Lab assay of single mutants.
Amino acid sequence: MQIFVKTATGKTITLEVEPSDTIENVKAKIQDKEGIPPDQQRLAFAGKQLEDGRTLSDYNIQKESTLHLALR
Rank of each mutant, 00 (worst) to 15 (best):
T55P: 06
D39R: 14
K63R: 11
L43M: 03
Q31M: 10
Y59I: 02
P38V: 15
E24P: 04
A8S: 14
I30R: 00
D58G: 04
Q31I: 02
A44R: 12
T14P: 12
L56W: 01
P37M: 09
D21A: 11
L67S: 01
K11D: 11
L56N: 01
L50W: 01
L67G: 01
H68I: 10
D32V: 08
G53L: 10
I36F: 15
I3C: 02
I13E: 01
T55Y: 07
P38A: 15
G10H: 12
Q2C: 05
K29W: 05
N60A: 14
E24T: 07
V5I: 13
L15G: 00
P19S: 10
Q49Y: 07
S65N: 06
V17S: 03
A70E: 09
A44P: 00
Q41A: 04
F45P: 00
L67Q: 01
G53V: 10
I13W: 07
L50N: 00
A46L: 09
L43A: 01
R42Q: 13
T9W: 08
E64Y: 11
K48C: 04
E51A: 08
P38Y: 09
Q40P: 02
P37S: 14
E24L: 15
E34I: 14
N60M: 09
L69A: 03
E16T: 12
D39G: 09
P38K: 15
S65V: 06
E34R: 05
V26H: 00
P19L: 10
K29I: 09
Y59Q: 03
E51G: 04
Q41S: 03
D39M: 12
E16S: 11
K6D: 07
Q41N: 02
V17R: 00
T7Y: 14
R42N: 13
Q49L: 10
Q2L: 15
A46Y: 10
G35M: 05
P37K: 09
E34W: 10
T7V: 09
A46D: 11
L50G: 01
D32F: 12
K63L: 07
Q40R: 12
D52A: 07
E18Y: 11
L71H: 08
D39L: 13
N60D: 13
G47D: 12
A8Q: 10
Q41V: 06
K63Y: 07
T66C: 04
T66H: 15
L67M: 04
K11M: 12
I13P: 00
T7G: 07
P38T: 15
E34G: 04
D39C: 05
R54A: 12
K33S: 12
I23T: 07
K11W: 09
L15Q: 01
K29P: 00
K48M: 14
L50I: 04
L67K: 01
S57I: 10
E34Y: 08
E16F: 14
G47F: 04
Y59G: 01
H68F: 09
I30Q: 00
K29H: 09
G47T: 05
K63E: 12
L67P: 01
D39K: 07
I3M: 04
G10I: 04
Q2I: 13
K63N: 15
Y59P: 00
A70M: 15
E34M: 12
K27E: 01
I13T: 04
I61H: 00
E24I: 14
D52E: 11
P19I: 07
T66V: 11
D21G: 04
N25V: 11
K6W: 07
D39Y: 10
D32E: 11
E16H: 14
K29G: 05
A70G: 10
L69P: 01
A28T: 10
I61R: 00
L71T: 10
Q49T: 15
Q2A: 13
Q2T: 09
Q31A: 14
Q49E: 15
E18G: 09
F4P: 01
G35S: 07
A46I: 08
P37N: 11
T22A: 06
P37R: 06
K29Q: 12
Q40K: 15
H68W: 09
T9D: 11
M1Y: 10
K6N: 09
L67V: 06
N60G: 15
D52I: 06
F4N: 05
I23V: 08
Q2N: 15
K63W: 09
E51Q: 12
R72F: 11
E34S: 12
Q2V: 12
R72Q: 11
G10M: 07
T12M: 14
L56M: 05
T66L: 10
L43E: 00
K27I: 02
R72Y: 09
